[in-house]
Design a protein around this nucleic acid. Structure first.
Lengths: 136, 136
DNA sequence: GGTTGACCTCAAGTTGACTTGAAGTGGCAG
DNA sequence: CTGCCACTTCAAGTCAACTTGAGGTCAACC
């Protein structure tokens, strides 16, 4: 099993070395040992960082991510909760799809003000309804 | 045109009144006048908040959102940039879809450690590659 | 016309997620 | 064996996005 320095992991993951040290501090990733005083990481760390990166994209806090994907990838949350989060993610994906469409729309639609464009309004009505649901 | 108090808009949008005041401070939303010293908002504010809410979901900063959807919905950014952001959003949507699948997977897969499950690894390999691309 | 409660302002505080700086260590190429 | 440079620790600083608190205002109902 090939071990790597923090600098290499930083390069691979696109996160700064200070971020990686911070993540280890708070227990989000683990180094497998030291070479002198240098942390050594294995391939699993890169996988975990990929997961963390996705979790951040989804707007989860580092604490949330820690709960959902513990050290070995085994979650500390009950199955039902994980499915619930996956479903919420699904709703978010639908929202982002609307936002993507809205962005393309405002880029191209020649209407004076988008707020009056029926197509744009239709996109946004969805967002309003989704928000209302989240409150319930 | 029916006007509403900040409390009503807060209820409709699911954002606290202090947040709405803050958003007006930084120019993200606009009130259309005052009733006594109370801000009055119209329907457009609710639409804008829906848009802001989606933008936040996507991980955009409030400044980004301000640039992409100015007061009237007319962007302050060139068309090409907006399309570029929409495409980035598309990549993000694909990432979140993988994350959703990964969540369902860790909830259900009986494997000792997910890091060794081939299905899980396949999901994560994508994430690693996506991350690498973002660096380029 | 008095009380109430939702609103107001403005400054300061909080939280999450890092980043920076100073001072030190140690593996390795020359 | 010497110098370099990527690493180390730990405390303090930064930034975005709000939230809180103190003290004040006023439209509407009783």
């Amino acid at each position: 099993m090939k071990l790597i320095d923090i600098g290499v992991l930083s390069e691979q993951s696109g996160m700064s070395t200070s971020t990686l040290r911070y993540y280890e501090d708070i227990g989000l990733i683990q180094s497998v040992g030291r070479h002198g005083l240098r942390r050594q990481f294995d391939a699993q760390a890169a996988t975990q960082l990929a997961l963390i990166s996705l979790g951040k994209m989804a707007g989860f806090s580092l604490d949330d991510i820690k709960e959902m994907f513990a050290k070995d990838g085994a979650p500390q949350l009950p199955r039902a909760e994980l499915h619930r989060r996956a479903d919420a993610l699904d709703a978010q994906i639908r929202g982002l799809t609307r936002l993507r469409d809205a962005l393309h729309h405002v880029a191209d639609c020649p209407a004076e003000t988008h707020m009056k464009c029926p197509k744009f309004k239709r996109l946004m009505d969805f967002a309003a309804r989704a928000k209302a649901r989240r409150q319930a």
